[in-house]
Design a protein around this nucleic acid. Structure first.
Lengths: 343, 343
DNA sequence: CTCGGATATGTTAGCGGTAACGGCCTGACG
DNA sequence: CGTCAGGCCGTTACCGCTAACATATCCGAG
């Protein structure tokens, strides 16, 4: 039943409390806590002890306002349940780890107006940089980013014009490459299975590149099937059944992502189809999950981890007094043939 | 080539800029932008127009400092690539959506000291509440949370003593329940396959509950296998092979999560084993992915979405002037027998 | 016409830190 | 013994915004 040292017990502590408890000025406490400027060893000890004893947690809001420095990096991505963005995040986090910078995530659910409001909200906290997925944004979003006066890195995609910097792969090229490999393997009746893509621009670009290569070879997509929402694995299974029923002559299934591809693969194996002889399959992303499947789905690694790493490096570099110029870094995904393309 | 209205073109804008551009005081601008207090229609229009034209983004740092209110909720979880936490996040986000509160995520990678530093970092931004996974924290972490003077909700687990509120399930009971169902189905030679769990307390508690029920029935675990890192699906496959090779008499495989369970299931099916006659399997979590498998793995739904929802409701309620009392909300997972337990 | 009370806008004083600068003291050096 | 650099610590003035209060304006009732 001891009473607290001074005043209100539940008031949150400030520098002044630590200052009084340790008998030095607030400024000195601030210096100790930030490890900046010269403070004698004994004073430092006294201050640290007092801070620890009181359970003082600095107020970064006040600190940021005074110093005009915020150690946050806004990361704006469409989704987290996607298996692709967690890995990008890992790359970002790793790289930022020892720069004093901290990522803060915002989710847009692939909705441009939601992206705009998330961006607005994040910018209002004056972060040191922005990492944002994709090159397609609303006019207002682009304007905000251009105005913000901080490094902006648009990631995943480089088929377009970034506001500032960009790190990613060419999805159009990725689609084309996959198509070429499939054609070279002798498949001719190719179907596409993928997301409904009003706003999944990267899936759209892959499809465009893919169809481009098909038509160059005098071919056209034989069938296509779209989905949205639900368990991707299950959707892959269902869509595959639908396509194979509707178009029995199909000899290749190109999926817009690995998850539905995996579902499709499981379905084909279950039905006892000869993969890759009778029918071939390919996905996109190179997700870890594929390693656990009975046979390995053909895919393309989207360089997710490195994209995160490189983007974070750009932010960190510019924050610590780098140049202003916008860099465009293109990465090159590798085609993994797996066991589902013959040849 | 027009020059900017005043001074430095790249300086970030403040209320004063909007104030000057619209000919009213900063205070009035502030009122308009926050939709608070009485402002005439014409003034409001003029201010909004000016703000839009200039591309003004308010500085929440200054706002928060002045108003002593921060619309952020700290959410601290072990991992994002886990399939379980994204769904909790969805529940949180949904519920917070129209409260003006915004979740901010921190990741601990199951490391207590990392949790401590993430917590410290987040508390230094003075959030309106904290949602944190688990009941086990360092002494310092518990002290910080107790001191913070804001609502704290510990989620996922209720087998223990929360700092303030808690929302979750009893993992011990969940393990026990699963064991009872398995025993009732007539399986007797049961093996456990799961994560190495220095800090995955929930997996540990499930195992404890499970073994508890086994021993009550006069049984003991026949074999066990642990993993850490890597593709869970693949690990499930590998561990299953290891166990079945080492202990051919095993007739049930209890997995600590659905992902490795799915890997094991695929392995068993691939080997042509009779599931669930010859061998049974069960996982934990009720992840969506299972819907896409050839047959449905037995599992227990961990109520992830509802946990997120309820936790967010507690925070929102207390923030908007609710009571202080710590609530403990227990949810009850449902056993989904699927097709991998006979009977 | 006067006056009370909305309604609309401005003024002042911080919020809790930090940058910048200044003062004091010590010890080395000419 | 004066001087001065450098270590150590305090003072002052904000950072950009908002709470609280003060002031002006307008309207209709009495």
């Amino acid at each position: 039943m001891s009473s607290p040292p001074t005043s209100d017990p539940r008031r949150t502590l400030t520098l002044r409390d630590v200052s009084e408890a340790s008998g030095v000025s607030e400024m000195t406490v601030s210096r100790v806590l930030r490890n900046r400027g010269d403070v004698s060893g004994t004073t430092r000890e006294r201050v640290l002890e007092a801070a620890r004893r009181l359970g003082y947690v600095p107020n970064k809001i006040a600190g940021a306002l005074a110093s005009q420095r915020v150690n946050l990096v806004a990361v704006i991505i469409p989704s987290m349940s996607n298996m692709v963005f967690p890995e990008v995040m890992t790359g970002i986090t790793e790289t930022l780890e020892d720069t004093g910078l901290q990522p803060v995530v915002g989710i847009t659910n692939y909705q441009p107006d939601r992206e705009e409001s998330v961006l607005y909200e994040m910018l209002s906290w004056r972060p040191s940089g922005v990492i944002i997925a994709g090159l397609e944004h609303t006019e207002a979003s682009r304007a905000m980013m251009a105005q913000a006066g901080i490094p902006i890195v648009e990631i995943m995609d480089i088929d377009g014009t970034p506001v500032d910097s960009a790190v990613g792969i060419s999805h159009r090229r990725a689609g084309r490459q996959m198509a070429e490999a499939i054609i070279a393997a002798g498949y001719r009746n190719i179907a596409f299975l993928g997301t409904m893509m009003p706003y999944d621009h990267r899936a759209r670009k892959r499809l465009e590149g893919f169809e481009d290569a098909l038509s160059k070879a005098g071919l056209a997509m034989v069938d296509r099937e779209f989905y949205s929402g639900g368990s991707a694995l299950l959707k892959g299974r269902e869509m595959t059944e639908a396509v194979l029923t509707r178009s029995p002559n199909v000899d290749f299934l190109y999926y817009s992502n690995d998850m539905i591809g995996a579902g499709g693969l499981l379905y084909c194996l279950h039905k006892g189809l000869d993969v890759p002889g009778q029918i071939g399959l390919a996905g996109f992303n190179g997700v870890e999950l594929l390693d656990g499947l009975p046979i390995r789905l053909a895919t393309m690694d989207a360089c997710r981890h490195e994209i995160g790493r490189r983007a974070a490096e750009i932010i960190a570099g510019k924050t610590h007094g780098g140049v202003i110029g916008g860099d465009i870094i293109e990465l090159f995904p590798t085609l993994q043939r797996g066991d589902t393309i013959r040849g």
